[in-house]
Design a binder for these strands. Structure first.
Lengths: 154, 154
DNA sequence: CCTGAAATTGCTACGGT
DNA sequence: ACCGTAGCAATTTCAGG
């Protein structure tokens, strides 16, 4: 007995596709586009949220305008994988770490870091990440240009 | 003559911090919290948007509930860096590619890919990415668990 | 799954300090 | 430069088919 996956129809897709790129899109403009009432849109949104498909909405900040001009990926090697849990808890305390993944392949942990400049990145690497117990070494890739940033198509 | 960076005050921070985690937070609830009118909040939001700090708002989908359970990072080696522009344009056509970066270090291009399962990931790697002219080889890291996902603190 | 009505909130123009 | 009031449009909830 497989758990039923919520089925979204064409109207749900239109709603989500409009709101994915602008969470403040007027509901009524979507309502007019698909030909149902605004209240019906709200009901569908509540269902999508209850199903977990809709995880929330966010305002997106531009890090560069705030002075955060260096984006980097850092692969972290651990002395042993048993140190993972502690290490990730320490990473959470570092504000510059915006993503953290436990990965297959060379690294144990793979993080995305947002810093003001390369000097700031060096400080975070040498004084914060390398100080975490269990971290043996790191490999850094600086993003010089990001050309794609989107969500999966529905 | 350095370009002046827009200065955000405490009220701006409260506004942004509330909207970062929920773009549909009622403006009036923020207004009551900080003790100014809703109109004043709107004026500040317009300024923040004009300054570029506020890049927009998005609905966040949960890929797993939609059946996208495999998240992976792929480092792409190019035969020569002159192929970058063409390669990234081909990557844009692959829906599963949700991020693409031009990076320093081992790889030329570094992408984040969202797939339904490992088989789907293999298809994307072998039949889509490896088919791009100029791509010599790839290295893949599958994210087994993502513990951190946030924006820079303001 | 939908509509329509009622209350609340969003948004903008204009004026005040 | 920053804020408030006012007015209309949109959002959101609720009752009901």
């Amino acid at each position: 007995m497989k758990k039923e996956q919520y089925l979204i129809d064409g109207i749900d897709k239109i709603i989500l596709n409009r709101l994915i790129n602008d969470a403040r899109t007027p509901i009524l403009s979507i309502a007019r586009e698909v030909g149902i009432s605004g209240a019906a849109i709200h009901q569908r949104l509540r269902k999508l949220e209850a199903s977990g498909i809709l995880a929330g909405s966010k305002f997106v900040l531009n890090p560069k305008v705030l002075g955060y001009k260096t984006l980097a990926f850092v692969g972290i090697f651990l002395e042993s994988s048993s140190k993972y849990k502690d290490a990730v808890n320490r990473l959470k305390e570092i504000e510059e770490v915006v993503e953290s993944h436990y990965t297959t392949g060379n690294y144990a942990i793979f993080v995305k870091i947002s810093c003001k400049d390369n000097e700031h990145l060096m400080q975070v690497l040498n004084h914060r990440i390398q100080n975490i117990k269990g971290v043996s070494r790191t490999e850094t890739f600086i993003s010089l240009e990001q050309q794609i940033d989107r969500q999966i198509k529905i």
